[in-house]
Simulated scan of single mutants.
Amino acid sequence: MYLTHMKYISDIVKDLQLRFVGRLLYLDFTRPDITYSVHLLSQFLQKPTQSHFAAALHVVRYLKKTSGHGLFYSASADLALTSFCDSDWAKCPLTSRSITGYCVFLGGCLISWKSKKQQTVSRSSPEAEYRSAANTVCELKWRCYLLKDLQVLIALPIQLHCDKKSAITMIGNPVFHERTKYIEIDCHLIRDHYKAGFTTPTYIHTESIG
């Protein structure tokens, strides 16, 4: 009887935590500053622990203190797309996978962002950055299709800012050398879009991104 009662309580707590994190996932559509923390918490929804619940409460306390933060869209901004991409190589302590991050601006206004663990383990930091740039190009392509349907014409090429010079070199170099032979073929789509003049990779210092 006691074990049944404890299991019932445990199921209730788990359900509450699932709903809690689910609401945070919905909220990060307008609060990109909590995207990484919330998506990290969402990886433990099957077996959440007390520490995960405490971390979620920490995010809520942060939101309470920063209730005035949000996204601002100016009516006078120009309609030019700009993008930034970055990656943290082997940052996941559980899988040693890299974290991909990018953000897309339309006329200086943030319209798209993402922070996600990469599906495969990158063997080097340039490879992780290259994968991040490829994901950003896919997002830019989709945004261009969407804006075209809204009768918004985007000037090409689109600036793709990256803080890894070696990754930029890999984009422009058509030779499949030692550093790129472990990268999947679909990642090399960025090279085709670069040749077609869709995007231009540009180096930016890491401190400038922050």
Rank of each mutant, 00 (worst) to 15 (best):
T4C: 10
G197D: 06
S98I: 04
L106A: 01
S132D: 02
P93W: 11
M1D: 07
V152W: 11
T30H: 07
F44Y: 14
L25A: 06
K165M: 09
Q118T: 01
M1C: 06
Y26D: 08
S98V: 02
S42K: 03
L18N: 10
E184A: 11
L57W: 06
F72I: 14
T4F: 14
L79V: 06
V121N: 02
V59Y: 11
A196G: 01
D33T: 05
T82H: 07
F53C: 14
M6C: 09
A134M: 07
A55T: 15
G172S: 09
D86A: 04
K117R: 14
M170N: 12
K114T: 06
V152G: 06
R23H: 14
H69K: 12
L71E: 05
D163Q: 05
L25T: 01
K64M: 09
L160T: 03
D11E: 12
L156Y: 14
G101I: 04
T169M: 11
F29Y: 15
D33P: 05
S208E: 14
I190F: 04
P93N: 08
P32A: 05
F72A: 10
N135M: 08
K165A: 12
Y130W: 07
Y194W: 14
S51N: 12
C138N: 08
L150S: 08
S42W: 05
S51A: 14
I171R: 02
P157H: 09
L153G: 03
I190A: 01
C138E: 01
K114S: 11
E129W: 01
S124P: 05
R97N: 11
T100Q: 00
T202I: 15
T66V: 11
E139P: 00
H188Y: 03
T120G: 00
L3K: 11
S96I: 11
T82R: 10
I111M: 09
K117G: 03
S124F: 01
Y26F: 15
K7M: 12
K117M: 13
C144P: 01
S10C: 10
Y8H: 13
S166Q: 12
E207T: 12
R31P: 08
V59E: 12
S10A: 13
Q43W: 08
G107Q: 05
